[in-house]
Computed example of a mutant assay.
Amino acid sequence: MMKTIYRILLALTFTLALTSCGKDSKKAAPEPQIQPFAYEIDSRKDVSYAGTPRMTVSVYLNTDAVPEEDRMVETAKQIWKKEKTKWREFTVFMIFGELENFNYGAYGIAEFTPSGLKEFRVNDAPLQMLELKKSGVLDQIRD
């Protein structure tokens, strides 16, 4: 009887060891690298307040297509990493393609704190304003 219990315990130990090794090997697989966009800095503004060092950076992404969110996030992180020790709050505003300036707002907005990305959001308003401009509606409103 003792030998049977011993064999069962040995089999269970061996099974657990194999199972845990399989899980570790799955965790070790590297995640694919997300390629940031090439970009040009449009402006940098120190908007510090009440003892809080704060910087905003406006950038133009070098793409004509609507940019993917994960690549915008990666681009913003790349910009933030170069500056993170200087600022307590850091915001990256992004436009692209036919959005020639920030008059209609930023398409991508990334907010950072010293610990990293706090929030990322996409603002569709600049694209909507561009469509109104192309259709001539904005010119009719101004007249």
Rank of each mutant, 00 (worst) to 15 (best):
T85N: 15
P53R: 08
L16F: 15
S25A: 13
I109Q: 11
A38R: 07
F14R: 13
F37I: 08
L99K: 00
Y107F: 15
Y60P: 00
D124S: 05
K82L: 15
D143C: 00
T19D: 05
G105D: 03
A50S: 11
S58T: 04
T13W: 15
E31G: 01
P30R: 04
R71T: 04
I109N: 10
M72W: 12
N101A: 02
R44G: 00
T56E: 13
T19N: 11
E89V: 04
S20G: 07
P126F: 02
Q128E: 14
A106Y: 04
K77C: 03
A125T: 13
D24Y: 15
M94K: 09
M72K: 03
P36A: 06
R121H: 15
G97Y: 13
S43D: 00
L9I: 04
F112V: 02
Y60Q: 05
V66G: 03
Y49D: 01
V137E: 14
A125C: 06
T113E: 10
N123L: 00
R142Q: 08
P53A: 05
S135G: 02
S115Y: 04
P36F: 10
F90Y: 07
A38F: 08
M2V: 10
A50W: 11
E69I: 03
L10H: 01
L61E: 02
I5T: 08
Y6F: 13
Y6M: 09
L138I: 07
R142V: 09
K134A: 09
G116F: 10
M55H: 03
